[in-house]
């Protein structure tokens, strides 16, 4: 057994152990803390599977941004926990659920243990056009060129989710600021962190966006880091949470998807179809789309965590 194998076995066991903790933990807050570490461990597993792009996304969005969202929710819902303890289903449902879960797991395990041979792969097909695209990272090429329509639709899903979140605000708060109250004292450690970290974080976020063309990274990962920096500044109270009726805010939210759509429709007239890029401008177009997308992703992720408006609109 090699050292790498020992690492893999340990990591896989740890991931499953933390997952058991998330399901079994006594309080929701403890489960959420487990979920954040679960995301980070899963990111390591992704790195071990040679999927560093996914590892970055899992760490930034699956663990970081989702963790911030769930932690806020768990602390707000703490008063409801003792009441719902009496609602636990009986032993019969537990057994049925356990049998069902074991069956599903066993089915998936069988699929893993009896792999298709030869393993299906689109990697050779993806490699053929990489020189034309001038994008050396194949995952970025899939996201921005081969399957650009998926990425476009995913941006629309993000916007729809944000509209859904905002629409859950009580009428009197519409147009106001989200309820992300500043929680720190001006001389507290959070304020210090919010002054020290963002200059570095913003550089790292932009670097990850830029390097996405040739190495692991890209718009999602960079955007998530920028969103985290923005949230840190807002939670520390260094900058106010913007009111959602602001024109500039709405412009930032839609500029990414709008530019993407415009380029997509231009593809009908210039090259030969929706979302196809003219050959000589492929790389610049992908970069322009990624830059504006990163801006919109950062704003949308930050506002999804901030939640619906909870303060009245200031005149």
């Amino acid at each position: 057994m090699t050292a790498a194998m020992v690492l893999d076995v340990g990591l896989a066991l740890l991931v499953v152990a933390v997952a058991v903790w998330i399901v079994a933990a006594g309080s929701a807050f403890a489960a959420v803390v487990g979920f954040v570490s679960f995301g980070l461990l899963l990111a390591l597993a992704w790195a071990r599977l040679a999927a560093v792009d996914v590892a970055l996304t899992e760490a930034a969005i699956g663990s970081g941004v989702t963790g911030a969202l769930l932690m806020t929710a768990a602390s707000r819902l703490r008063p409801t926990e003792s009441r719902s303890a009496g609602e636990r289903p009986g032993a019969f449902l537990h057994v049925v659920a356990a049998v069902l879960a074991v069956l599903v797991s066993a089915g998936l395990a069988a699929l893993v243990l009896i792999p298709a041979s030869p393993a299906p792969s689109l990697a050779p097909a993806a490699a053929v056009h990489l020189p034309e695209l001038d994008v050396l990272n194949p995952v970025t090429a899939v996201l921005m060129a081969y399957r650009a329509v998926d990425t476009l639709l995913e941006k629309i899903v993000l916007l729809l989710a944000l509209i859904g979140v905002w629409s859950l605000a009580p009428d009197r708060f519409w147009g106001g600021a989200p309820g992300l109250w500043p929680r720190s004292r001006p001389d507290g450690e959070l304020t210090l962190l919010a002054r020290l970290l963002p200059p570095i974080g913003i550089v790292v976020g932009i670097y990850i966006l830029w390097v996405g063309a040739i190495a692991p990274g890209g718009a999602f990962q960079g955007g998530a880091i920028l969103a985290a920096m923005w949230l840190l500044i807002m939670i520390a109270g260094l900058r106010p949470v913007p009111e959602i009726h602001r024109q500039w805010l709405r412009l930032v939210l839609v500029v990414g998807p709008a530019v993407f759509l415009t380029v997509g429709f231009a593809g009908f007239f210039l090259p030969n179809g929706f979302l196809s890029y003219p050959a000589q401008f492929t790389k610049p177009l992908i970069i322009v789309i990624e830059v504006v997308l990163t801006l919109s992703i950062a704003a949308i992720l930050g506002l999804l965590v901030a939640g619906p408006p909870e303060r009245e609109r200031q005149r």
Partner: peptide, 30 residues
């Protein structure tokens, strides 16, 4: 990972789908 070919560590198509999936899962969770 099993679809590793053409000098890549893994098939980029499922990897890109998962990146999209993680972001959509986050929107639904929010």
């Amino acid at each position: 990972r099993r679809g590793a070919a053409a000098g890549m560590g893994g098939d980029p198509v499922p990897q890109a789908m998962v990146i999209t999936g993680i972001v959509v899962a986050f929107s639904a969770t929010a």
